[in-house]
Write a protein that binds this DNA or RNA. Structure first.
Lengths: 157, 157
DNA sequence: ACTTCACTGATCAGGTTGTCCAGTATTCTC
DNA sequence: GAGAATACTGGACAACCTGATCAGTGAAGT
């Protein structure tokens, strides 16, 4: 596990808020030397704290305004991994986890409309090994995905 | 809704794979003029297709290897928004949605350990208006969060 | 046929990057 | 407490990239 301190958190905050600032400008804003910012970024990446800097694409903006969460039961004997691999082939499936509890898999899916969601679910349940799917629709995004508050909390103790 | 074409998708693919490439290098790799890449990026951002370029922080790497999904029932009369705002104050709560079905809210939470998860859940259920919480633990990340395959699919028709 | 739009290829000044370095402060180890 | 390791600062350098702008070309829509 990698240790992150308050400066790391401030650096990532800044780059999250204004991705276009360069290392030099960041060092000015944070009041540290440029080499420090550069070294911190390198370290964060090397330690795996930062997985990447990919663009955050809004699915609504590209025509998929419907988000749903599906929990799946799979047949005894079907491997989770095999089923998950088949799900990965469906582009509308954005995320898949194996979970505890009565259900086996959890996934996040998107669709162009509620009617289109049926089409996507059909693609999901047709996957070999899936026994049952239960779906709920996300009505509103109350707290958008975020990690930075946690990062700050992690630097406290 | 913004229209995205294959070139947009290729641009975002490239920047997701290699965030450090500049606009100039990207234009060379993609075989288009630099101004085109620049204009596309500006448009994608302006149209809201790209929300940002924030660092993808790995919660495991910063000491929170446990991910769980909680569904909450809230008391009749308690506003979803009020409850969600209270949840937003807990850094371990990474995401909150209102959902259809028997439950009212869905949220993603992380913790330092299974024991620590109890602490976080306690913080969640103590929020005024929450009646009941049901939690499942994510055992394995079968398909990590992704959007780019969908982006490519959206450019097909 | 006309207008609009997007792309190309080019230019320009200015700023930034990557990479060194020596000096200093802090923390850790023996 | 002494020595070693580590991290940060402030500076330097050449090479490169950015943001902005331009005229010219092709395609699409009116």
């Amino acid at each position: 596990m990698a240790a992150v301190d308050a400066l790391d958190a401030r650096i990532l905050d800044l780059f999250a808020a204004e991705p276009r600032v360069g290392v030099l400008e960041a060092s000015r804003r944070l009041g540290v030397a440029r080499g420090t910012v550069q070294a911190r970024l390198d370290r964060l990446q090397r330690d795996g704290v930062v997985r990447g800097w990919g663009p955050d694409v809004d699915t609504t903006a590209i025509g998929y305004p419907v988000t749903a969460f599906a929990t799946l039961q799979i047949e005894q004997g079907s491997g989770h991994t095999t089923v998950a691999a088949a799900l990965a082939a469906i582009p509308e499936v954005l995320e898949v986890y194996t979970i505890t509890g009565a259900e086996d898999l959890w996934c996040r899916i998107v669709a162009r409309s509620n009617a289109d969601l049926q089409r996507v679910i059909d693609q999901v349940v047709i996957v070999r090994g899936i026994q049952r799917a239960s779906t709920v629709i996300a009505l509103a995004e109350q707290v958008p995905h975020r990690v930075l508050p946690l990062l700050h909390a992690a630097t406290q103790p």
